[in-house]
């Protein structure tokens, strides 16, 4: 009797879940766990049909596993999404375990492409080599690290690279804005920075802090979520922080961006200044790293080509700055070479 009861219990549990499942995804997913691939893909082809006749290109299929930087994620997602419309049978998946985490998986040969918001480090490249992974590096877009301050901050019109270094670098003694430059009010300063695991921090460390590392005391807060940094700066009159251009662009009504002076007069990050390189040293290229062995697979090659050919027109939509056209041509040549 118990057995019957127990199995009934399990059955009800399963049924309850099935109910939720059915309610949740109306038409989709009826294939079940052991579902049939052909039916699924046929379905996909139908849904996305019309974009390109099947005869035009050989039908590609297979899995492409991508992982890495969450900064590059929106770009790769955009490329995958559009690529899938033309090649519904190629299953592209993108993860976000961070630039460092991505390179680790890349070196172990677990993924085909690594998203990176900074160039690969020597030891990471060595690891990949040791793991038998040969790769190419492709830059896909620019991001302008934006230094932002509170809307009510009316004393900062620009900051120099040295001043940024003075504010953020390890061992900094800056406690109020008056310590930054003579003439600034003695408003207490509060700092906001992405966490030390992020490529954004790595780049800032290299470009501004001379690799000395960032200060770590009670005036600075770290967060992996850039929206938290936005809120921090927006809520503190003496706040200052830095993050990707997209996060400033979306919150331009709440924040003020700081023009950066690096010897050629203060430059504010805009689509133009980031693209033509005059917003220096804080405009950085974003990369994808492709495993050469994987590139032999036609679907991977097609995807990477698609990525380089089309990302320029999609970059602005997700908050990044496209490379100049001739740069994309150079990157495309690397795929062939």
């Amino acid at each position: 009797m118990l057995n019957r009861q127990m199995s009934k219990g399990i059955l009800m549990l399963a049924m309850a879940m099935l109910l939720v499942f059915a309610a949740a995804c109306g038409n989709g997913g009826s294939g079940g766990e052991t579902g049939n691939a052909p039916a699924e893909s046929a379905n996909g082809a139908q849904e996305n049909g019309g974009s390109k006749p099947a005869e035009e290109e050989a039908k590609l299929s297979g899995d492409i596993v991508i992982d890495g930087s969450s900064t590059v994620y929106p770009l790769t997602e955009a490329a995958a999404e559009e690529f899938n419309k033309e090649h519904p049978d190629v299953r592209v998946t993108v993860g976000v375990s961070g630039t460092g985490g991505g390179f680790e998986k890349f070196a172990a040969g677990e993924i085909a492409i690594a998203d990176a918001s900074r160039p690969i480090k020597d030891e990471e490249a060595q690891k990949a080599k040791d793991g038998g992974v040969d790769f190419i590096e492709l830059s896909v877009a620019y991001d302008g690290l934006s230094v932002v301050i509170n809307k009510e901050n009316d004393w900062v019109d620009h900051l120099t690279v040295e001043e940024l270094n003075k504010i953020f670098a390890a061992g900094s003694t800056v406690k109020t804005w008056a310590d930054v430059r003579e003439g600034f009010p003695a408003e207490p300063i509060t700092l906001f920075s992405p966490g030390a695991d992020s490529g954004t921090y790595d780049y800032f460390n290299e470009a501004i802090l001379d690799k000395k590392g960032i200060r770590n005391d009670d005036l600075i807060s770290f967060s992996e979520d850039d929206n938290t940094l936005v809120q921090g700066v927006a809520g503190n009159k003496g706040g200052i922080g830095y993050f990707g251009f997209a996060y400033f662009e979306e919150n331009a009504d709440k924040l003020k961006v700081v023009p950066i002076e690096a010897g050629n007069g203060p430059v504010e990050p805009t689509l133009e200044t980031i693209k033509d390189g005059s917003y220096s040293p804080l405009s950085r290229p974003l990369y994808i790293y492709v495993n050469k062995a994987e590139l032999e697979r036609p679907e991977v090659k097609a995807f990477v080509q698609y990525y380089i050919d089309n990302i320029g027109s999609m970059a602005a939509e997700v908050g990044y700055v496209p490379l100049p056209d001739e740069q994309y041509a150079k990157e495309a040549a690397k795929i062939e070479g």
Binding site: E33, T34, D67, Y73, A80, E81, V96
Partner: peptide
């Protein structure tokens, strides 16, 4: 799940137990 490498962008439904 992030640790074991669950994905963020997945545009298909898993067909078998070994799918991402």
């Amino acid at each position: 799940l992030v640790m074991i490498g669950a994905m963020t962008y997945v545009a298909f439904l898993p067909n078998d137990l070994l799918d991402s």
